[in-house]
Design a protein around this nucleic acid. Sequence first.
DNA 1: TTTGAAAATCGTAACGTTACGATTGCGAGA
DNA 2: TCTCGCAATCGTAACGTTACGATTTTCAAA
Lengths: 339, 339
Amino acid sequence: MALNSRPNLRQIATELGLSVTTVSRALKDGPEVHPDTIRRVKAAADAAGYVPNLHGRALRTGLTRTLTAILPMETRDYLSDIAKLPLIEGMTLAAREGGYSLSVYSTTPEEDPQENLARLIQIGGADGIVITRMVSDDPRIPYLLERGIPFIAFGRTSTAFDYAFVDVDNEGIAFDATRMLLDRGCRRIALQLLTREDQYSAARLVGYTKAMNTAGQPIDPQMIGHEDFTMEASEGWISRLLDMPDPPTGLVCANELGLLGALGATRRKRLVVGRDFHIVVRDNTHMCRYLSVPLIAHVVDMVGIGRSLVQGLIRQIEEPNAPRMQRVVEGKVQQIAKI
Amino acid sequence: MALNSRPNLRQIATELGLSVTTVSRALKDGPEVHPDTIRRVKAAADAAGYVPNLHGRALRTGLTRTLTAILPMETRDYLSDIAKLPLIEGMTLAAREGGYSLSVYSTTPEEDPQENLARLIQIGGADGIVITRMVSDDPRIPYLLERGIPFIAFGRTSTAFDYAFVDVDNEGIAFDATRMLLDRGCRRIALQLLTREDQYSAARLVGYTKAMNTAGQPIDPQMIGHEDFTMEASEGWISRLLDMPDPPTGLVCANELGLLGALGATRRKRLVVGRDFHIVVRDNTHMCRYLSVPLIAHVVDMVGIGRSLVQGLIRQIEEPNAPRMQRVVEGKVQQIAKI
DNA sequence: TTTGAAAATCGTAACGTTACGATTGCGAGA
DNA sequence: TCTCGCAATCGTAACGTTACGATTTTCAAA
């Protein structure tokens, strides 16, 4: 119905007695078109409700003005994914500002990321791609570079390739977090790392180590947990640490499961969080505040990161020779007031 | 590079000494093509890594095999959005199963939903649309119906239009929730409703009223809060209720902010949740379990709803004359064990 | 008035696909 | 041998856009 009667360039052209070419050029302010003509064309296009057909344009130019963000969903625990929502928001905003539309392609962690990528590109669905959840020595980077496909990564990898990325300053955050605990008088500090996030873990370990060194505190490997913690595993791990003869009095969590494990373990030991035991947790935008314990949180501006990612990607698409965005975003570590 | 040398139908056709037409038909198992030819063509296409070009096809057929879900993001409180993640997961899975790809279009609540819709469709970006966060008498429904655009809604509205939807049985859930509280001995039960979710609120109020009636309990309008609660507002509201001469001993929350407000208010009153005061909360998949209070939660299978939405939409696209999906999904109300 | 160059506009082809009608090849029946 | 019918394949056009070269118009200078 109304769908079929969608105006195209030819209709506007015949209506105005112009050629399709001129109309096309007028609509993008082509310098070869007379200013008056441009005005006439634009008025007619507006009146007719003309919107350029994505597929006609894409077929001709090879460009779709669409970006795709590939977001693996953490199906076993959606709460871990909550940081993706502000990320999506930031990406959407920046895409719209740049005249692109953003499509979110959610995958399960089990799928082969390589294969998804290949399909996505071949099908001609996007001008550029945002990839996330980088692993060290990520195979997607050489894959995309080889093919000359514009992309930007959320997270660095240990490879030497020159590619665009935005990353969180995990080392700095871990340093600040550890320092904060040291300043509160903690000497023995536990550090929770996830094997599934090895490249982040490495950075965090560096920050932690530096902070401990500046305070002259030795690093005890027993204080460093490095596995894919469930909540139960976190609780077990911290309980064991608290049973040691010289237990920790502070913890730097990797995620909210670590926090909840710590809350369980300290409750059983009748330790008061904020007095006997201090916890630094990743900010989950809201959840931390819901718990009635004083916590220290590190906050990262995820909306800003989303924006940066898309801005960097658009720049790379539109100016392929410009230097690639390589941005490290700092976080803030701060006390959260209890409710 | 490799992007440009992407194989197309013509390349495969010349390679095999066939016409483009025959290759095209062979690839979709056209009955007019000789079985041997089909085999040959498919082998060659596989070998060449052929993937049909989305835009060429879309331009010719008007179909993109892409679905778009429009998800307003709750920028002031991402935690409210967490239910969207399993929804996205379910939609993605069902889309992939049906041979479609799903694009998530996130909007801010302030934007004009109508305008977004129009652009989205005109641009030719999708074969069908999932709309969410319905308001009563939602203008998008006649808009889409008029234009013959396939869509499905997450949520019913009060209109008499015949359109596809999947909805949660809010009335049933509210009934079960209220009954559960009555069974625990609550007589005065507070009900939290959100003005921003009027169409859900109405259903909940009906369920609540029915349950109270079956127990012979009068409905006290003072027990029904109806505004867009922040956490602070929730806490204030419940505190005031608890200050009344005949305070409530149970609460049916609209969202987790209500829960947190109730936790704050009861703590100040030194009431023990689970003994002096009972709370029914929407399941947030994980968060409820993190709180060390016994709660009652109603759970809804969001992944399943996502699947249903997309399945219903695909059916409508592919069989326009089939009856439209109109599905009401029941929830379960259950006690959550404390950690 | 003529000329030349610049300004404005036009026509055609192509992107990759599919729909549709035309064409070829082949075997069976007359 | 001829013809009919069917199976298999082909050629052309079209979807809406843009790039590119060709063409027309305009206007100032000679």
